[in-house]
Every structure is written in structure tokens, then in C-alpha cells.
Design a protein around this nucleic acid. Structure first.
Length: 288
DNA sequence: ACCCAGGGTGACG
DNA sequence: CGTCACCATGGG
């Protein structure tokens, strides 16, 4: 599948297929990856890494040498996308998306971090979302060092739960501040997000939308990006446009018609969603 | 000044 | 059940 070569502190992965670091880091699934030299510097939880790709070769430079397996799992490199892509490519309407978006992998993120991040994402844009998360981490995330790089871990639920509304608003969270506070308190009190991995998509959705600031779209992002539900299908403004163009010849469909299309995409519809989303933004569908 | 951004809430019918 | 004004904030 792929080989791993370990040096003192780095790992060289070779023989990768269907992996595009640049697209995966920029596609809007995670908000703590930034360009760094030839690659990307990212933070997940309390871990950081510098990643650089050249063809089928990926260099992983982790903040701790013990985290190589963590990053291989985070990047979902152990999954074989061959069969899934083959499955999705049977739908001709997806061909153009899969071509333009090839190599995007769904990162396996931590549920609480993902939940907070996507509550922030509501009616917001990627640049501002990233900025707010960075400010939140700087405010109450553990301060850590990676070589000569200072960074902050994503805050623990208890840390966010201890903030005031004013402190949260200072992170640029606007009207979402009380949602973030309430959610952090619930998790700090012991709500187990990981349990949602093992129940049905519908039941998990219902649970998540009980959190303030979490509607169907945010719930599906959390389910897809952190809870292993590959058939969760977030529909935002871009997806609405893309579905209208790709599946309904530009005529806005009914809600039930959209649901029918999603169902037809099968158990990997969420992965397809990511490819379609990237395609829609790339093509600026619905804009000049 | 207006519109938009990986939408959700609450009120109203 | 569906619709819709409103919600903070910053960039285009």
C-alpha cells in the first residue's frame, strides 16, 4: 500500500495513492492548517506537525516522534480510496468533480474540536473561522513548543467552559459566543461525543442538533469529519448551488429531491460531498 | 453602502 | 411541517 521510512524524528511515507496534501488542507474540513515553507504546518488537539508532499511521497515532521502513527491515522492514509472512488465514479455526474478534486482525504479529527469549529463556521467564512479558532486557542489552549515554533493546543472543554461571553466575543465569535459556551459546558459535564460513532446516522444527527448552534449542516460536518459517518452529507450554500447545477440542470430542486440524490450516492456520499464542495468552490459555481 | 460567508434560532402560520 | 427576519463580524 505504502512504505514508511523512519529517521530520527521524521517519517517518509512513499507510494501514496489518491492523496493531495494541498487540497486536503485547503478544502475547508479543518481550520488549523497553514502554509509553511514547501508544505503545511498544522495543529490537531495538542499535537503539531509539518507536512510536505512531493508526488507520492509525504514527509511527516511531528512535534513528537511518538506521533507518527497518530498522523498517519489522522490523514486517513490507511484507508484505500481505490474502491470507493471507483464506486463514486459510476455516477457520471460526479466524474468532473472527482477529476478536479482528486486526492482529497477526509481527516479524522477530534469530535469536540470539530464540534466547536463548525459551530463557529455557521454563516461565516473560512478565513474568519480560522482566525477565531486561533484566537480561542491562544486565549485558553495549552501553550506548547515545536522546535522554535510556539503553538497552542485546541482548548479543553473545561477551559472554554470557564470563559466569559465577553472573552469569547473577543475571539470574533459574535452571536455564536453563547452557543460555544453552552456546548463546552455540556461536554465538560461529561457528554460523550464518541458514543455517536456507534449509533445510526439519524440518531446521531438528532443528538447533535440538541446542542445550541448546531443545525443539520453543522451536525453533518461533525459526523463526517470526526465521528466516522461517511454517509453524512453537509449541505451549505455551495453544495446547494453544486447540486442544482450537477443534478438538476440549474433548476432549483425540492428538498426531497435533494435528499433522494444524496441517498443515491450511497454509503460514501459524504466523501463525494467533499469532492463536490471543492469543485463548486473551484468553479465558483453560481458566481460571475 | 451593500452583499456574502461550510447556518441556526425563534416566531409565526 | 415550511417560511423568514435576524443574528456579529470582516472582506470584497
Amino acid at each position: 500500500m505504502f512504505s514508511v521510512e523512519l529517521t530520527k524524528k521524521k517519517a517518509i511515507i512513499d507510494g501514496l495513492q489518491y492523496f493531495d496534501l494541498n487540497r486536503s488542507c485547503r478544502c475547508g474540513q479543518a481550520f488549523r492548517w497553514n502554509e509553511h515553507g514547501e508544505g503545511f504546518l498544522g495543529v490537531a488537539g495538542d499535537k503539531a506537525a509539518i507536512l510536505a508532499q512531493s508526488g507520492s511521497r509525504l514527509e511527516i515532521n511531528p512535534s513528537s516522534a511518538a506521533d507518527i502513527d497518530f498522523w498517519i491515522n489522522y490523514l486517513d492514509l490507511n484507508s484505500d480510496y481505490t474502491q470507493m472512488l471507483c464506486e463514486l465514479n459510476k455516477d457520471e455526474r460526479l466524474n468532473v468533480c472527482l477529476t478536479c478534486s482528486s486526492g482529497i482525504r477526509i481527516f479524522k479529527q477530534e469530535p469536540f474540536e470539530t464540534l466547536i469549529s463548525f459551530i463557529i463556521s455557521a454563516n461565516n467564512n473560512v478565513k474568519r473561522i480560522s482566525g477565531s479558532i486561533a484566537k480561542l486557542a491562544a486565549l485558553c489552549g495549552e501553550k506548547l513548543r515545536f522546535g522554535d515554533i510556539d503553538y497552542h493546543a485546541f482548548p479543553e472543554p473545561e477551559a472554554i467552559a470557564g470563559l466569559s461571553i465577553a472573552e469569547l466575543e473577543a475571539c470574533g465569535l459574535g452571536y455564536r459566543a453563547p452557543y460555544i459556551l453552552d456546548t463546552a459546558k455540556r461536554i465538560a459535564e461529561g457528554y460523550d461525543l464518541n458514543a455517536l460513532k456507534h449509533i445510526s446516522l439519524e440518531a446521531a444527527r438528532k443528538e447533535l442538533t440538541e446542542f445550541k448552534g448546531v443545525g443539520p449542516k453543522v451536525a453533518d460536518c461533525v459526523l463526517l469529519f470526526s465521528l466516522g459517518h461517511t454517509d453524512a452529507f453537509p449541505v451549505d450554500v455551495w453544495m446547494g448551488r453544486a447540486i442544482t447545477e450537477l443534478f438538476f440542470n440549474g433548476v432549483k430542486p425540492q428538498k426531497t429531491e435533494v435528499e433522494s440524490v444524496i441517498k443515491s450516492l450511497g454509503q460514501y456520499s459524504g466523501i463525494a460531498q467533499q469532492y463536490i464542495f471543492h469543485y463548486a468552490r473551484l468553479m465558483r459555481l453560481g458566481k460571475k
